[in-house]
Design a protein around this nucleic acid. Sequence first.
DNA 1: ATTGAAAGATGCCACTT
DNA 2: AAGTGGCATCTTTCAAT
Lengths: 152, 152
Amino acid sequence: MKLDTIDKKLLELLQNDAKQTTKVLSLQLNLSKTAVYERIRKLEKEGVIKGYTALLDKKKIDKAFVVFCHVRLTQHTKEHVVGFESDVIRLEEVLECYHVSGDYDYILKVNVADMQAYRNFMTSKLTSLKHIGSTHSIFMIEEVKNTTVVEL
Amino acid sequence: MKLDTIDKKLLELLQNDAKQTTKVLSLQLNLSKTAVYERIRKLEKEGVIKGYTALLDKKKIDKAFVVFCHVRLTQHTKEHVVGFESDVIRLEEVLECYHVSGDYDYILKVNVADMQAYRNFMTSKLTSLKHIGSTHSIFMIEEVKNTTVVEL
DNA sequence: ATTGAAAGATGCCACTT
DNA sequence: AAGTGGCATCTTTCAAT
């Protein structure tokens, strides 16, 4: 789908505040509210907008502990890769998992309450998955920036 | 703020779809819509809910290239740390930046269109920041999982 | 926490550029 | 093709209980 300048502006506005009314959006875009409404509908239908979410303060929900965990597999056959990926997706503590280039195979972003919870996650969940060769944890000292907003 | 079982359920529902009406939410929580409304207001006011955002499909907005960049500073004085952090926050390509433990100081999650754009970001933006000692880039081959939804 | 009601937003329509 | 203005319906918001 081709996005014009108005679509891009609209997507930026919706990333910054998804609850703005079409009326408020229409004033910022110099369009009628129906035109804005139709554009949003189209962006949703085309899958450009995947959904809308509430962003929570991790400190206030007792999930302030973030760890990047590097994972190496024992082997890299299709069966091992597919197996690991389908298992890791189901772990609720793993918010993100990327297959990456370099010295290890995957980077996991793990989000739990504290070190104790992380230890528990590692011993009873992650390392009990099949095909894991080694792991290496990097602990977050401070979140300097964390946004979901992509500039267009 | 103390969150009860209903608050936690409500936050999970809002993380999964922030555009659900209070009526729909109230049916799932067995509450009146005004009660749901008051709870949401309180969670917003207390800062548990930081905001609402539209989630976009990175492939469809031509930002499918994700790189983890490890950064080491030349020194670790307060001045160097504060200077680097305030500079990196302003880079729109950097969606996330964490001060971490281990062999390097920061992990950056960089989101751009393609390798060419990343090369450009590195040479004209990141490496021109002061106090940077070294960088190491890890390229994403595939996004296996990426959610903002925290289980409560 | 609930009901009920006013104020406001959405979603759809016929029509215009 | 995409934009407008208005109207019916649904939601949000708030007062009273």
